[in-house]
């Protein structure tokens, strides 16, 4: 029982991290990163090989640095960032939205395909196994207590990363990213180096992807290429849209509803005899349907993006100006009610 509960807790916090990473790329900056899971996979793989010793027989992999936790995970995060630099240089500068989406989703599939086939580097379809479980020796953990401890460790990591992300998104940096999302031409005309800003956003988001991936591989102990198919990116998008694009707390809510309740809870249901995998298929289809319904009925998500009020910038409220300005209505026309423009 404890095992199941803490498995769910782990996935909650891990997907909270993953969704925050995608949120700064898509929710804040508007980069439709359909290759997100590829960055998670790179983080996972590099964390694995950074943590594993160099001499396990029967598996092909690179590095084998034997780094302890959390250095291996940090290495995974940095590797994902390195990939982001390459991807951004090739794609971001020159492609409009749908080309970018096509290239990224293709990239994601090709990464999978390449990993799955190229044995010398990635061990082919076997992936990695016997990835060391962190802290086990140091704390003398068994299989069950490892789940509990590692879920809590992931929770702490998620909180630290949330604190950092909140800082970034509330800072002028976050505002510049949102300006680029809303209209990159205007942002450029105001002196923002759009490409550099998008690159920053990609780097920060990829770091989160890499860390989330690194935690995943250590939790499960293995790296299986089929777990990183492009469809997995969609799950993170579902978390993001349901929770509320542009809101970090929303990412937690989305992870709770989509990843924990919708995806992992049904996994504990018994199989329907004669129909292997049926529950999983229907469940995956359900994720897609939930996302579409959500996008139609409440595109801003359960926890919408915050309105950052003037008072939060440390300036005093001056109601007397509000009063003085009343006469301006005849010049400006009546202020348009919030709803008239509709959702954009």
């Amino acid at each position: 029982m404890l095992y199941y509960v803490f498995t769910l807790v782990f996935f909650l916090f891990d997907y909270f991290i993953l969704a925050m990473g995608l949120n700064i790329q898509y929710g804040a900056t508007g980069i439709l990163n359909f290759a997100y899971i590829g960055f998670v996979a790179v983080g996972a793989y590099m964390t694995g090989v950074a943590g594993m010793p160099s001499n396990i027989t029967g598996q092909h992999y690179i590095l084998g640095l034997g780094l302890p936790f959390p250095l291996n995970t940090l290495f995974g995060g940095l590797s994902a960032m390195a990939m982001a630099v390459i991807v951004a240089l090739i794609t971001l500068r020159r492609l409009r939205t749908d080309y970018l989406a096509i290239v990224l989703i293709s990239l994601s599939l090709v990464l999978y395909d390449f990993c799955n086939n190229f044995v010398p580097l990635f061990n082919g379809a076997d992936g990695l196994y016997n990835v060391p479980a962190p802290l086990t020796k140091a704390l003398g953990l068994n299989v069950n207590s490892f789940i509990v401890v590692f879920a809590c460790v992931t929770g702490v990591v998620a909180l630290i990363l949330w604190f950092v992300m909140a800082r970034v998104t509330n800072a002028p940096l976050g505002r510049s990213l949102r300006a680029i999302r809303d209209d990159s031409t205007v942002a450029g005309a105001l002196g923002k180096d759009v490409f550099r800003m998008q690159l920053k956003s990609m780097l920060i988001g990829s770091f989160y992807a890499g860390i989330g991936g690194g935690l995943l591989i250590q939790f499960g102990g293995s790296f299986n290429p089929t777990a990183w198919l492009p469809g997995e990116t969609f799950v993170v998008f579902a978390v993001l849209i349901v929770g509320g694009a542009g809101n970090n707390i929303g990412m937690f809510v989305g992870a709770l509803l989509v990843e924990t309740l919708l995806i992992h809870l049904p996994a504990f249901l018994p199989e329907i005899p004669g129909h292997p995998g049926l529950i999983e298929y229907i469940d995956s289809a359900l994720v897609g349907i939930v996302l579409m319904v959500m996008l139609w009925t409440r595109p801003q998500g359960i926890v919408p993006e915050r309105v950052r009020r003037a008072v939060t910038f440390g300036v005093p409220d001056r109601p007397e100006i509000d009063a003085r300005e009343l006469g301006s209505a005849e010049v400006l026309g009546a202020p348009v009610a919030a709803a008239t423009e509709g959702a954009k």
Partner: peptide, 26 residues
Amino acid sequence: LGGLTVLENLLAAPAVQAGDSLVNVL
């Protein structure tokens, strides 16, 4: 910049801001 408040539209305007640097933010 539709998703930003009116005040934020103005705050986004100065081209070079200390807070656009990740190092400064952190």
